[in-house]
Design a binder for these strands. Structure first.
Lengths: 185, 185
DNA sequence: TTTAAATGTCTCATTTCTGAGAAATTTGTC
DNA sequence: GACAAATTTCTCAGAAATGAGACATTTAAA
């Protein structure tokens, strides 16, 4: 119950902060159907809560990405699973990505947190390069663009899932179709 | 000069609010290199400023989309121009889209503002349907997904543009490649 | 160069957000 | 049902954000 509440608050925070980073903590409490007072017993301030969100997102996304990658040896299949995994991570992926690409955030690999982020998502870039070498992906498409395109597709899928009028598995298939065709596979 | 400042503040607000809707107004003022006092002389409160942002985005995006559409009669070419126009609108497009798809915003066509938004971007959906009827777009891809995919590509392009390491025209071409292939053209 | 408009500076009252103590209430467990 | 833990309720003080008045300074245009 104790850990439940804590986790519950973190999830609520990720959900709220993803849309409005400076939202009052009361909104997070409301989202978690908890009193602001309770929230403060778990997290003494916004910074601490944000740190917990970050930890949760890093851990959760990290595990999901790693598991996805290990499901196959074929880089193209890996890429497909990685896309599905990212979509499954949902808001956790979206918010983590936002934090690391926000204006004002200096993303440097030297930073512990950025390094961890890079370790989780750098795989994708690596796979892309491999596929490009093999000639599976059109040489005309730059790696930089694909690195932007991938999270673009993921956040699009998450938005679609949020608006709710679509079967999740079908959605993922569509996302993969658009992504794979979009990089010239 | 007077209208300059006003416009300047609005642009700054769109930029800041797009990333952080509840950001203190001081951040907007800073972004506009103006005092908070000056900002308040133009907009007596946050709500008024947001309304002005909305008006600016609607007007600006509305004109751009209309112009793009009129550059051709071929629906596929229209779609391409619409994508370019949306990317050119940049943060204005991104924030407007966000506002109308935010959790908590009930998007109903009856609402004046939502209707205006729909009038501007409904064209895209209409074109998609036309292309689908003609068999140019794969029947397997749903219109709902494309309606999500389009803004996904646009925001991806905007993010890429923001991170700055890419030529704008090239970026647009890549975006169009990924979008058109991604919908099965 | 003068003059009016616009902006900046300093200040202040008000509101909202934050963080936490203390007691009452609910929840889960034995 | 009794007990302990967790949460709520009520409360309050301090911090931050907001909105605006009064006057100094800058800017642009005649």
């Amino acid at each position: 119950m104790l850990e439940d509440t804590r986790q519950n608050i973190i999830n609520a925070a990720i959900f709220i902060f993803n849309e409005d980073l400076s939202a009052p903590l009361e909104k997070v409490a409301d989202q978690a159907t908890v009193t602001r007072r309770t929230l403060h017993r778990y997290f003494s301030n916004r910074e601490e809560l944000l740190a917990a969100c970050n930890e949760e997102m890093q851990k959760s996304c990290g595990l999901a990405m790693k598991a996805a990658e290990q499901r196959s040896d074929d880089p193209l299949v890996q890429l497909e699973y990685l896309l599905y995994a990212a979509i499954d991570c949902g808001v956790k992926y979206a918010f983590l990505h936002k934090l690391h690409h926000m204006h004002g955030h200096q993303h440097v690999h030297k930073d512990k947190d950025c390094a961890r982020y890079d370790r989780t998502f750098g795989k994708i870039q690596h796979i892309i390069e491999k596929l490009k070498d093999k000639g599976i992906i059109s040489k005309l498409i730059t790696v930089e663009w694909i690195a932007i395109f991938f999270p673009g597709i993921v956040t699009a899928s998450i938005n679609s899932h949020a608006s709710g009028n679509m079967d999740n598995e079908h959605l993922k298939k569509l996302a993969w179709f658009s992504f794979s065709k979009g990089i010239g596979v």
